[in-house]
Write a protein that binds this DNA or RNA. Structure first.
Lengths: 174, 174
DNA sequence: GTCGGTGCAAATGCTTTGCATTGAT
DNA sequence: ATCAATGCAAAGCATTTGCACCGAC
């Protein structure tokens, strides 16, 4: 069973709001919850999905929040340590990250023709992962799974090689 | 069923040798099979697994084959286009590649304590992948799967945080 | 007034590119 | 001769770092 629906951003679960999770993490390290850090987290929450540093910077500018590149990257590291976001690694040019705190692990499917990216989650996958670990004697911690495929639209319309969207680097590139 | 055994490098299958595959590819593009390109491919075959550019350069030096960095990278791109190697993406610093021509797709498990990396392959995983694609209406082309886990040794010996081997960047880094 | 935080600009480090030279057909 | 390949050094780029200044407790 797979679900790829955008899935209501947890409107019901009484989950600790991300900002307080972050604040708690920072306090535990003797660090401060500054406006810049809050702004970055907000922008990430607004995107709610995969993002890259540059995009985040634009998002921040759009909201006329001035955060330097240096601070952005520093904050991204903190958020990783806090377990709020993880690195996604789609191509070797720049890093992609995604919000994961309080979410099921999400995997990705990338269209090799159009570059369209969707997220999905599959219990079967987790089951397989755990079984593999068990058979080899390892203890699972996390995983990263990306499928390269051709989306239905691309298949159907014989879509032209993407224009604005550059197809992600996959089983072969360049 | 999982197999992680080094698996005999195809001692029996009468598979077209990689160099001729590469040569054929080059010819089809009006390109030349030069000594440098052959040397690079040899070094990759010798490693037979995951490698990074820098390592390959060392391997080449060891065999006293002089290939410039530029040529190395250019050749790596050609080999990707030829479908002989693919990019692996373990961390965001540098690219990793792996030989895949004529092999079952291989996935990876990385130890978060020691950095040990093993390869495995699982039919179940492919089955799950195909099922997911089918359910969402996409046509599978390839995939990339990495498990972050703790290896048995690390679990047992309370191994010290790796010295030479730096643990790969996973569900959190920095 | 002590620390940590921030922005800026400079530094990194992997990868790519421009260019003059070299080599194969 | 022609066309591609090579090596070198320079350029690109995402990311990191050094440093002087700022602000909260």
């Amino acid at each position: 069973m797979v679900s790829s629906d955008p899935q209501p951003p947890s409107p019901k679960q009484p989950m600790a709001p991300l900002c307080s999770v972050f604040r708690r993490y920072l306090k535990s390290r003797g660090l401060k919850y500054t406006n810049e850090r809050a702004d970055v987290l907000d922008a990430i929450i607004a995107r709610d999905g995969v993002f890259e540093a540059e995009e985040l910077l634009l998002e921040l500018r759009r909201r006329s929040h001035r955060v330097s590149k240096a601070t952005l990257y520093r904050t991204i590291h903190l958020l990783q340590d806090a377990g709020i976001i993880v690195q996604a690694l789609f191509n070797s040019k720049q890093s992609h990250f995604q919000l994961i705190y309080g979410k099921q692990p999400r995997d990705h499917m990338v269209c090799m023709k159009t570059g369209r990216l969707i997220e999905f989650q599959s219990e079967d996958l987790i089951a397989v992962r755990n079984r593999i670990c068990k058979e080899l004697g390892w203890s699972p911690v996390g995983h990263r799974f990306q499928i390269y495929a051709v989306s239905p639209e691309a298949e159907a319309h014989k879509v032209h090689p993407a224009k604005s969207q550059s197809p992600r680097t996959p089983p072969r590139s360049r």
